[in-house]
Design a protein around this nucleic acid. Sequence first.
DNA 1: GGAGCGCTGTATCGTATGTTACGTATTTTG
DNA 2: CAAAATACGTAACATACGATACAGCGCTCC
Lengths: 275, 275
Amino acid sequence: MISSIAELISDRIGAMPAGERRAAQTLIANYPLIGLKTVAEFSAAAGVSSPTILRFVARLGFQNYPEFQSALQDELAAQLQSPASRTLNPASPGGGAVSPMLEATLENMRETFRHLSDKQLADIAAKLAERRGKTFLIGGRFTDPLARYMAAHLAIVQPDVYHLAGQESIWRDRLIDMGKRDVLVIFDIRRYQDSLVRFAETAHQRGVQIVLFTDQWLSPIARFARHVIAGRTAVPSAWDSSAALFVVAETLIGAVTRQLEADGAKRIRELEGLR
Amino acid sequence: MISSIAELISDRIGAMPAGERRAAQTLIANYPLIGLKTVAEFSAAAGVSSPTILRFVARLGFQNYPEFQSALQDELAAQLQSPASRTLNPASPGGGAVSPMLEATLENMRETFRHLSDKQLADIAAKLAERRGKTFLIGGRFTDPLARYMAAHLAIVQPDVYHLAGQESIWRDRLIDMGKRDVLVIFDIRRYQDSLVRFAETAHQRGVQIVLFTDQWLSPIARFARHVIAGRTAVPSAWDSSAALFVVAETLIGAVTRQLEADGAKRIRELEGLR
DNA sequence: GGAGCGCTGTATCGTATGTTACGTATTTTG
DNA sequence: CAAAATACGTAACATACGATACAGCGCTCC
């Protein structure tokens, strides 16, 4: 049973030629408002010509464009009258594994932040924003991309940010550059990697301040860490989810950027100039 | 301060003549949809003539009817995109910047998945699980870590998964390995990178199927993409958020893994043995 | 009760919008 | 590799929509 136009589209999008598919995609991306505008505006937004839009609505089974718009309006009217039904997904019947996955992820995030006080985050942000020393980031097998993501942003708002990549021997050699004033951000979730634990221990002995992103069971690195962020990772999937940690990382990136705004703005302008 | 048109109306309805007041009342009663229809329909619903409707919108301060409709649409767009912000009280007062950030991120995810049908995800997962060709992944300046993250997982459950890294010239050379049966997963959000667009175009010409992760404004690559995932990226921060795309990526990873479970399980055991 | 003013609807006009026909480019098929 | 079929855009077309001029009606205030 197809109840909404959005469903209708995703049902038939596979059988559409390229141009009409672009129309479909832009409509889904800005659903449903772009469809209430004129054909010209719709076509411009999709980057195709007007006739393509008309062929697109014709393929959906509408006689003409106004009829298509009326259908969208009716749908909108139904939504607006029962706002509650809108937040929920129209119930995947055959048990698509999407909703449970999303729900679990959202719950993980709420739970993660519930155990994370504003003050903790502010402290960590302040530490990362400190310009006295260098910042190193490193991650495990699956979490290294998170370290990269954070490094890519932090490196823009402040100098001396380094992501440690490649073989273990390479980053172990970088230990020589690390000292008391430096910060090491480590991502490590199950199954915890011995190499990272050893690395953290040595860094700790050199007086490096460690910020650890881990799961709720805490990597052994927590033992050496100055700050520990414990994110929920359990989802109905074969894999653990790093999404909660990702959001914490983004939150910290935002907080650090705000703190460095004065200096950072100048720096960002300089970088823009360099491109 | 008057923010919505509904407020504007109730503010001035007292100073209106009878006919226009009827127009105002029917608009409020069927807000805002009747205002998106034609003047003729609006006038019929209100039981007045067309010019009365036009005088009504003129009195509200609009130059013409289309301008009035655009205002209604903008208002609707704002509502649809942040249903939470309207129902929730505007701000937690003592407000560390944490909770707005989290709220926005959660909302982004709900919104992203609302525009993403189970079928679409299933289609993409099926495509990624196909073993006929190779899978390549690449990302932009800030999104490349997402490509890495996805690649790290996919590479475990199936062979021939390659993350394209390093300099442009390097991955451009890899184009020679790509053909019709292959899939290219691209992450590209604002500001869209020319190098990626060029790369996508060439790959597309070679018949490679492109799966695009982008933001709601759609990277120009959408033009060449077989599948487009449009994630919401706006958060109260200096940076855009890739969290919603990250969650979609995790969902897909889970779905692909499930599909390959039979083969995949064996493969994973083999890999475990190799460590 | 009459004159003036304001509100409203009818009828007409210009235009922006949706529609269609046709030629070209691209893809698919034998 | 050729030929057919499909898809896409340009440009001309027709319609329906919003805008406007004008006349009729009711109301208010002298």
